[in-house]
Design a protein around this nucleic acid. Sequence first.
RNA 1: GUGCCCAUGGUUUAGUGGUAGAACGACGGGUUGUGGUCCCGUUAGCGAGGGUUCAAUUCCCUCUGGGCACCCCA
Length: 426
Amino acid sequence: MKKVISNQAPKGTSDWFPKEFKIRKYIFDTWRQVCLRYGFEEYLSPIIESAEVYRAKSGEDVGGAELMSFMDRGGRELAIRPEMTPSVTRMISQIYLASPKPIKYFSIANFIRNEKPQRGRNREFWQLNFDIFGSTSLKADWEIMQMSLDIVLAFNPPKNSFVMYLNNRKLIDGILELAQADKDNKIEVVRLLDKWQKLDQVVIKDKMSDLGLKKKGEKILFDFMESGDLESLVKAIPDLVDNDGVKEIQETIKVLESLGYKGLVEFNPAIIRGFDYYDGLIFEVFDKNRDNNRAMFGGGRYNGLAEIFGSQSFPAVGCAPGDETMKLFLESWGLLEKIISEKKDCYYLPLLAEELSDKLFGLASKLRKKNCNIELGFEVQKVGKALEYANKKGFGKVIICGEDEIKKGLYKVKDMLNGGEEEVKI
RNA sequence: GUGCCCAUGGUUUAGUGGUAGAACGACGGGUUGUGGUCCCGUUAGCGAGGGUUCAAUUCCCUCUGGGCACCCCA
């Protein structure tokens, strides 16, 4: 028995056949358009980086077990990138001092994380990364958030189909301080808060009690998480009046609403973000569809991150939507059907008789020079079969050019949608 | 890393302890110059290994592959 090699794509990756490619291209093109509209410049980094970059900062999973790494011939350990932030930070650190600020960069790239695939998550995935470096202004945060909303709106979703939840790490820090959490437990508390809406709240409260929060602080925290009402929280806890986080949240919502995003932005105390490096405004964009009720993507400010790489520290705020979650959103609201059913922007030119071969090759060449896309038939077909073929392959137009047409010095262009024909002189 | 579910033509699936049927697809024809609906034909399958058995696609085990949830994240 011959050894049979599987024709399946490697685990966690998927082949993009033309139908799928069309969808991804539509998503990427739309993303790119929004980024360019905001004056962002496109960049790309190598698909591999020194593995130590990720081992140093990407955390136990992304930078450890899930890292796809290998040795080169010089004994250097390299890794296929699992995220963009280290690479773009590395790139920016080369040019930061010499560049006019702010630096606004975006990229659309693929990544590999060696994990168990499931709905909305593969080993290979694509992300749009857009970041602003070198600005501490809240306006930079607002622009990133505005873009995040525009990136969804650009697909023409129905009203009330998604929402951006907003929070601020400074507010969380402030509350934790009031609750007098041990520093060691702080990350644990934040992790639990992150799961506020996912887990049974009794369980969370039990676990929280084990983390040594002061009774009074604990009550403040729970009341806050339950009500999610920023105004009454501030009233109840005068200490928070001066908290920058509160001010930034309030101002951000006001600004975005005035920009026409009313109803799309809400404060939500349960938005924490898993990454530890966030240190200011943070947000997550949610699909509101019941069948796909999930965070699509998120982002926020991470001023403290750059210094981890040993270069000069610089402020940053950014966001990274993934292709898979975006596609699920579009599917859940039926926003891809139009794209899928679009006819190919290509003419089919069947070979109706062998004697016409030379003439049709010539015609195809002539039309291609005029920027028409042409598929020329190789085998002789009857008109009926040719139309059936064109129909199955989704051609928008068919050029009918047989002996009769050649004699008359013309060809017919048939529209496959309405069946109409048009005569064109050769 | 943990847990659960699944495995039959190219695809979606039915079914059985005595080796399998359908639909769709592809290809050809009905129709020697007009498609999307119709009719006919052709094509092609029990993931791998082991066990139980006279006999396994079916029951059991292992592996492989796939899916989902958790962890984490896009």
